[in-house]
Write a protein that binds this DNA or RNA. Sequence first.
DNA 1: TCTGGGGTCCTAGGACCC
DNA 2: TCTGGGGTCCTAGGACCC
Length: 420
Amino acid sequence: MYALVDCNNFFVSCERVFRPQLEGKAVVVLSNNDGCVVARSNESKAMGIKMGTPFYQVKDMVKAGRLIACSSNYTLYGDLSSRVMSILADTVPKIEIYSIDEAFLCMDGIPPDRIREICAGLVKRVRKWVGIPVSIGIAPTKTLAKIASHFAKRYPGYKGVCQIDDDEKRLKALSLTPVREVWGIGRRLAVKMEDCGIRTALDYVGRPPEWVKEHFMLHGMKTWMELNGRVSVEEERPEKRKSICTSRSFAEMIADRAELASRVADFAAKCAAKLREEGSAAQQVTVFLYTNRFRNDLPQYFPTVSIRLPVAANSTQEILSSALKGLDLIYRPEYLYKKAGVMVEDLVDADAVQLPIFDYDLGLRHRRDRISEVMDRLNSSGHNVVRLAAQRTGDYTDVVRSGFRSRRYSTSLDDIIEVK
DNA sequence: TCTGGGGTCCTAGGACCC
DNA sequence: TCTGGGGTCCTAGGACCC
């Protein structure tokens, strides 16, 4: 059996932990730059606010006092997430962290008749110790556990735990689940399935496997098997990422090359730091720019360029200088840019980098690695105490729109003192 | 005026090989 | 007019997830 633990309205719940006056109110959390709605309380869902709604479309409700908006505060969410995860990890033999607000628990070795009771205990403990409400779905496959967790979340009668442990319950649950809500079936596939007359998950599992394979290929087959109770979604992914990306939209559009370069330099430095944190090194650095895709009146340009590194690297200097080289190749002064990003790809283990035999300055490499190490130590507080001259001066908060930010209650000493 | 950020996997098709 | 058959590898783009 798998148990999927899903934090309810996670970002909103995090805000509520430290501002209990938000309890029972319509609350939304906004994306970077206060761009769009990325989390909603039950009350704001009931008001019809959809995921991804641009903030300006609900601004009037905020002004009228009917809706409370919070800028996103990922430091806070990340910290509360790790507290939730550590409680889960302490309770069951194995957990697979799936996202910031979800984890699969592997219930191997736990007597079947105790699973529900253990999960009910977890719901209470996480609520009491961290303050976050969670829902848990229990089932023989991950896809079914997801469905069970939806029921646990939707119907208060379950008290946060729903288990699918026999065929009767499974078929009942599938018949009540629209196919577009199934894990692994997105918008495009859902439309295609509905065109074939498939409305519920039960309709889908009723189709013969040959037909499913023909129309929805490998991916569709896996989902089909999972819904039929046969495990097909692999075990956890390897712990190291295959690519790392840092990108941001800008509060204002940018045309100036120097300004753009300093932003790209920041993104590159961030990628390099993430690489080192993970013990990886990159063989390729990609830079991309976006003009404002919502401005039909402006010329559009979405260039991207990749630079191969002769030797895999993770020093800030090397990643940054490649990124700026890339920027030079794609930058055109006649456009207004709204977003940029740096991606590092083809990652290898940092301690297994293949060095060339000839014409290679190993001393230079070591010096760069040393500098990066020192930078990491000095920057470990999360503030950019030291940076390369190509990077921006000043804090990131200077350039991001964030009108409703809560404090970093659980991680920043200043903010903790403020609360007291 | 104002529209997020970060990942993974799969497939089709092209390049290339014999 | 008529132009083989079979592989592998790589990449871009599309689909999905949160």
